[in-house]
């Protein structure tokens, strides 16, 4: 099933003491499986906030979020957890691997939470690690891996439950150029060869150039692309 995420006139405001800051100002966008989208813009333009809205990680102050036509705006974030578990895969700038679990167990973790049997989860996790070139390091703990290796494991984790859309927030931000290149290549393959939706928040033009669609943000609004 293809997931389609639609944002309609979404606002997101934060209170910082006496001041209210609007991170998103009336943003409307649609993202589907099968697209590779880059969200670019200067720091503080609302890129990550937009990504969070797409991934149902945060709730808008105003506006609506629809998943496959269903308005999920009133639904509590926690009730959307199963959706995030199965439909979305998340990749973070700082990897956020669980430090006490090995690479293999990090990848297995979402599968086990989704109810997959242990043996099956292990088999699939090894396959995913193989896909990202990390099979030999399956038993290593995160602190034993380099930044690039950790991010590759994170990508494998993001694919654990066969999600429709991968959401990556500055995936190469903490990597050297070589590692970053490997990661971008992987993401590209996810879109091109595996047909998933990939949404990447980045301020690096090399990454943005590889995406079919570019959304430019400034001051909480989309100023380029849609």
């Amino acid at each position: 099933m293809n997931v389609k995420v639609e944002l309609r006139e979404v606002w997101k405001e934060y209170r910082m003491g006496q001041v209210t800051v609007a991170a998103l100002k009336g943003v409307s966008i649609t993202i589907s499986r099968g697209e590779m989208v880059a969200i670019t813009g200067p720091s503080g333009s609302g890129k990550t906030t937009l990504l969070n809205m797409v991934g149902c990680v945060d709730k808008p102050t105003r506006g609506r979020v629809l998943i496959d036509g269903e308005d999920v705006t009133p639904t509590p974030l926690d009730r959307l957890a199963p959706l995030r578990l199965k439909k979305f895969g998340f990749i973070f700038q700082r990897f956020y691997l669980l430090p006490t679990l090995s690479a293999l167990h990090n990848v297995m973790f979402p599968m086990l939470k989704a109810g997959v049997k242990r043996a099956e989860a292990q088999k699939r996790a090894l396959e995913l690690l193989d896909t990202v070139g990390m099979r030999e390091r399956a038993t290593h703990l995160p602190y034993q891996l380099s930044g690039g290796e950790q991010q590759r494991v994170a990508i494998a984790r993001a694919l654990a439950n066969d999600p429709d859309i991968i959401l990556a927030d500055e995936p190469t931000g903490e990597l050297d150029s070589e590692s970053g290149r490997v990661v971008v290549e992987l993401l590209h393959r996810l879109w091109k060869d595996m047909g998933r939706g990939v949404v990447v928040v980045t301020h690096q033009s090399e990454i943005a150039s590889r995406c079919r669609r570019k959304i430019v943000m400034r001051d909480g609004r989309i100023v380029g692309g849609r």
Partner: peptide, 16 residues
């Protein structure tokens, strides 16, 4: 703190 946030993002409900 961040780890708990990540777990929720990954799809683990807060109750769990």
């Amino acid at each position: 703190r961040e780890e708990l946030g990540v777990l929720n993002i990954l799809g683990i409900p807060r109750r769990a």
